[in-house]
């Protein structure tokens, strides 16, 4: 046997509650993060990701307590990201029981933070989250793709998908790896919330250019979407939120389905 594909429920946390947005916007309440973490862990999730989307720094201080509670109820790995600005923010998350810390905007604004974090905590703890979106306004020195006769490139967005950076996502993935990232959490802004499936083109492009594990995120609406992304790319893990939150499909059901479709999963 060999390494399995990981199925990762994601919990977007705002002011201490799990919420789910559509295309990074409208928010619905989906439950208590600690209860959901325990439930997913018991159902056989391979890992969990928490993204803190709380707006103000003041309210964000509560994440420390949340990390501690979650770490006491589960015995699978989990990553915490969202609003990590400094080494201290990362330390706060890791010393309170998270296994990995996700950095996104801070890494774009100050790339050496990736190397500093790697040196302090080890490469395996550092997840660089990349939010990417198609940009049809072509420019030089970017990787150009085409779909339906339209040409575009993948641009990295920061501040929760609100602000473009002008940076090519493939370039940034390679750069993040060179700086010391241990894993890439790749979210397609175009696909996120649509439930029409993962962004195969984006995922494949990043996976084929990176030598570290990549997690696909954004767009999963049904178990078949996971089968598709694993069959069409060599991605290591698939992250999803809504399909697990609203009892449409349990983690176990999804993994049994994947196994039937010959995707190697832990069951």
């Amino acid at each position: 046997m060999t390494l399995t594909k990981r199925i990762i429920p994601c919990l977007d946390v705002k002011n201490g509650r799990v919420v789910k947005g559509l295309n990074f916007e409208s928010i619905k309440d989906a439950g208590d993060p600690v209860e959901l973490a325990a439930k997913y862990s018991n159902e056989g999730a391979d890992e969990l990701v928490f993204l803190d989307i709380t707006a103000s720094d003041e309210q964000r201080a509560t994440i420390k307590e949340l990390v501690r509670k979650v770490a006491s109820v589960i015995n699978i790995p989990f990553t915490v990201g969202g609003g990590v600005k400094s080494i201290d923010d990362a330390r706060n998350i890791l010393l309170n029981g998270a296994d990995k810390v996700g950095v996104n905007t801070a890494a774009i604004k100050n790339p050496p933070i990736i190397t500093e974090l790697m040196t302090l905590f080890g490469r395996q703890c550092i997840v660089v989250a990349i939010d990417a979106k198609r940009n049809y306004d072509l420019k030089e020195n970017v990787n150009i793709f085409s779909e339906n006769e339209k040409k575009f490139w993948f641009e990295v967005f920061i501040f929760g998908g609100k602000q473009g950076t002008g940076i090519d996502a493939i370039f940034w993935a390679k750069e993040a790896e060179k700086l010391g990232a241990g894993e890439i959490l790749l979210t397609s802004i175009d696909a996120d919330g649509t439930k029409n499936g993962y962004d195969v083109l984006l995922t494949k492009s990043i996976v084929d250019n990176a030598c570290i594990p990549v997690i696909a995120s954004g767009g999963c609406g049904k178990p078949d979407d996971m089968v598709e992304i694993f069959e069409k790319s060599n991605v290591d893990a698939a992250l999803a939120a809504s399909i697990f939150h609203y009892e449409t499909h349990g983690v176990k059901g999804v993994k049994s389905f994947l196994k039937e479709k010959k995707i190697p999963v832990r069951l």
Binding site: M1, T2, L3, T4, Q124, G182, P213, R266
Partner: peptide
């Protein structure tokens, strides 16, 4: 080995 993705991350037998 450099032929594999490093780190080796995930569930294995």
């Amino acid at each position: 080995p450099s032929t594999m993705k490093v780190p080796h991350m995930g569930w294995n037998n």
